[in-house]
Amino acid sequence: MRVTVRLFARLRELAGAESLTVEVPTPATAATVWRALCVTAPALAPFERAVSCAINTNFSRMSQPVADGDDVAFLPPVSGG
């Protein structure tokens, strides 16, 4: 299946894209998508322990399943305010 990955801030810069399509085998979780993404963009790998994710604009755990067509956002540590 295919999911749309959205990246922000340093992750976006490291991957050189704010949005990309990632192909993963079914079934998959957000963690599966992250690992597939790190194959395409190895520079992201060091963020493994610091990344948060949101599936379809809802904060989600990395263990949450994803479905075909989902929008999966990976978020580096935040610094708003």
Binding site: R10, V51, F59, P77, V78, S79, G80
Partner: peptide, 28 residues
């Protein structure tokens, strides 16, 4: 906001630039 808002600050200095990375969001 500092703990969980998905907002990022990119600082531009006289001598370089840096993303500020604070809290790892965990809504649980």
């Amino acid at each position: 906001i500092k703990q969980i808002a998905p907002v990022w600050k990119h600082e531009f200095f006289e001598d370089g630039e840096a993303w500020v990375e604070g809290a790892i969001v965990n809504p649980d």
